[in-house]
Design a protein around this nucleic acid. Structure first.
Length: 702
DNA sequence: TTCCCCACCCATTGG
DNA sequence: GGGTGGGGAA
């Protein structure tokens, strides 16, 4: 894409601002721009490189009025959406336990992505659940509109509708963008392709890049059929097969190809490379997550020392965020710098959301969800009761909560009758505070406004009250404040809007530190799409994790899990490690695991280590090759009556004079003695006879 | 009205 | 393990 853009600009004299390139993340957008500029040897002024969401957000900022949006509109994320749905359920007196807000929301999101609006949804025949969804959907949209807010789906949907209903808006953008390029096309959804088609309608200068084998976002409505449809929609399109791989070793490419060949519904796409054969893919097996993480850390350090691979060129990848924990612990223990991508997301932290909610209320007082979030944070005498009464009163008069508060003395609205006297005083103070913030928001730069908010709302004092958390929370707030600094320069009210919408649209990969720091990257397989590393460690290659248990029933979803595995493997330039552990933590305890079927799908000739041979000889690890016996062993402690007094149960910690500390995996009666399977920290799994082993029990720490 | 504690429920992936 | 909602005390 970078070369095509550079070619358009330098060879065909297309002005950069006539080109719109769409990427999957803001980070990819940044990188693409940089690459273009490097090739061109000049700044590509005006070149638009955006994600679909940020493109739409900006468009709606400018032209949203035709769709009923004020330019200061709020963007609602998952949490905000759920609060909104809960409010609707409350209004309709629907039990949120019976109709889970998340499920209702998922149904609404599905509908939106099929471009089914609330009214049409209601018209379709449906189950009882769908009837509920239809009612909620409709009211949800009403409330969003009243709050001058959109959700993520709406960013696309409203823009799409705007293009349909207001040809002059579409024409404006068609007239500006003469060339359209889209990256990661296999993960676009129907709405996005729809937008692209409309934008390219006049000139058909549209170029998309995608790999169907890397389609991993169908759960977010990505539709890999877009790849096939593209050729149908544009019969004259030229397909260029990019099957030479410049990134990975032959071994990695072939192993990944072997894996993905197990997918049925697949276009042939045979990668090849001129790169070296390279090292075999290393299959590693660990006793538990702790050991698995330690294997990674040790190998990372070995590669740093022996092969001079910088830590920043290595990444540990996993299926679910919870897996990062063991890695973090191991890194901390061994003093390895790491950077965690995603996880407990910065913008989901309470203090961050609270401060942002204040800013949103200031920027868009109609934003009821944000207002409700902060109306009594810190506690200022406005109880849930009062809030409910206020909400109902506001709803009756078609007012926002903020308006209702502002008009609390108006007998026609009747707030005074609905809430008690003390609450009226509290509302008055709150109202005055917000009014003051709104007034100052016009002349204060975003960082100064944040300071002002922290001071005037008492939020700073509120944070400082909690001795345990105040340091961390305050640091987070300072980080948020720092992220607002780049917006201080601009000199209109828009800088606050820009800051807030940017905050809503950043992803975790966007904030990743590139190669600057010497840190190991910890990242989910999904987020790793589009990235590459010299060495990649994939963890948790176990049935139920990769493939994930939620995706194992449905063949389509299983294929997506395989693609996810493929994405992970193909992130590696030189070295690839695929690890599993025999035991996986789950709800506190640990459960035995089965190796991922994906490991079986790798060609034996391309792997080293592997089944039970990585760190211990095969014979010793033998019991693990029969998962059923393992499960039995781990789950059934020996009946106490049959053995000597001092026997062992699975999970107990023991110390051995040579092997050190370990955990008992199983203990079974055998030839009048007891056969113990013990996993030793650092020394692997051993089978021991109790009468010879001289074990001592170690009291559980904590 | 606020705060604290405990019981209970839930659990992929993310712009 | 974590978040939350309900109940009760201050």
């Amino acid at each position: 894409m970078a070369h095509r853009i550079a070619y358009l600009v330098s060879a065909l004299n297309i002005q950069p601002h006539r080109i719109l390139a769409v990427t999957f993340t803001n980070k990819a957008a940044r990188e693409l721009r940089e690459r273009c500029e490097r090739i061109l040897g000049a700044p590509a002024g005006g070149l638009a490189v955006r994600t679909f969401h940020s493109f739409c957000a900006q468009l709606l900022r400018i032209d949203g009025a035709l769709a009923g949006l004020q330019p200061n509109y709020s963007i609602y994320d998952d949490d905000d959406q759920e609060r909104m749905v809960r409010r609707v359920l409350e209004e309709f007196e629907i039990d949120p336990k019976r109709f889970a807000p998340r499920a209702v929301l998922a149904a609404i999101s599905d509908a939106k992505n099929q471009m089914i609006e609330a009214r049409q949804y209601a018209a379709g025949p449906g189950s009882y659940f769908e009837e509920i969804v239809a009612r909620v959907y409709r009211r949800y949209q009403e409330l969003l509109l009243a709050a001058n807010a959109v959700d993520f789906d709406d960013l696309l949907l409203v823009t799409h509708r705007l293009f349909e209903s207001s040809p002059e808006v579409l024409e404006k953008y068609q007239a500006r963008f003469k060339h359209l390029l889209i990256d990661e096309f296999q993960d676009t959804n129907a709405l996005q392709f729809g937008l692209a088609r409309m934008l390219a309608a006049g000139h058909h200068n549209i170029c998309v890049v995608g790999d169907p084998n890397q389609s991993i976002y169908s759960w977010r409505h990505a539709d890999p059929r877009n790849m096939l449809d593209f050729k149908r929609v544009y019969p004259n399109a030229r397909t260029v097969t990019l099957d030479q791989n410049y990134r990975s070793t032959q071994t990695i490419i072939e192993a990944a190809a072997a894996l993905i060949s197990h997918n049925k519904g697949r276009l042939p796409n045979d990668l090849w490379t001129e790169n070296d054969k390279g090292a075999p893919v290393v299959i590693g097996e660990a006793y538990d997550e702790e050991e698995e993480a330690r294997l990674v850390v040790q190998e990372v350090e070995r590669l740093v020392q022996d092969d001079q691979v910088p830590r920043s060129a290595m990444a540990a990848m996993y299926r679910v965020n919870a897996q990062s924990r063991a890695l973090e612990v191991a890194c901390n223990r061994h003093g390895i710098p790491y950077q965690l991508v995603g996880g407990l997301k910065f913008y989901e932290r309470r203090e961050i959301r609270d401060v942002l909610a204040y800013l949103r209320v200031v920027s868009n007082p109609a934003d009821d969800v944000s207002l409700e979030r902060v109306i009594n944070v810190p506690a200022r005498g406005i109880s849930d009761r009062t809030v409910t009464a206020l909400k109902n009163t506001a709803a009756r008069h078609g007012l926002s909560m903020f308006e209702a508060i502002a008009r609390r003395l108006d007998p026609e609205v009747g707030v005074a009758e609905a809430v008690n006297k003390r609450a009226m005083t509290a509302l008055e103070t709150f109202s005055a505070t917000i009014q003051e913030l709104v007034a100052r928001s016009f002349d204060l730069a975003p960082t100064d406004l944040i300071d002002f908010v922290l001071d005037r709302t008492g939020y700073k004092r509120f944070i400082e009250q909690d001795e345990e958390t105040r340091e961390e929370r305050w640091e987070n707030i300072l980080e948020l404040r720092a992220s607002a600094a780049p917006y201080d320069g601009a000199d209109t009210h828009e800088r606050l809007w820009d800051f807030l919408s940017n905050v809503s649209l950043v992803s975790d990969v966007d904030t990743m530190d590139g190669n600057a720091s010497d840190a190991l990257t910890l990242i989910t397989l999904h987020q790793a799409k589009g990235l590459e590393y010299d060495a990649v460690f994939m963890l948790g290659l176990e049935e139920g994790l990769l493939p994930h248990s939620r995706s194992m029933e449905d063949p389509m979803q299983l294929e997506e899990e395989r693609r996810l595995c493929y994405v992970g493997m193909t992130r590696a330039r030189k070295r690839l490690y695929m690890l599993r552990s025999f035991k996986r933590g789950f709800r506190g305890g640990g459960l035995p695991t089965l190796p991922s079927r994906f490991l079986d799908e790798l060609p034996r000739s391309h792997i080293s280590g592997g089944r039970a041979q990585t760190r211990h000889d095969a014979r010793r690890a033998e019991p693990f090759r029969d998962p059923a016996s393992l499960r039995r062993a781990a789950a059934t402690p020996l009946p106490a009556s049959t053995g000597p007094r001092d026997t062992y149960t699975a999970g107990e910690r023991v110390r051995h004079s040579v092997f050190g500390e370990g955990v008992v995996v199983s203990c079974t009666a055998s030839h009048g003695d007891f056969e113990l399977t013990v996993a030793f920290a650092g020394n692997g799994v051993k089978r021991l006879m109790q009468s010879y082993a001289k074990l001592e029990k170690v009291p559980r720490a904590g």
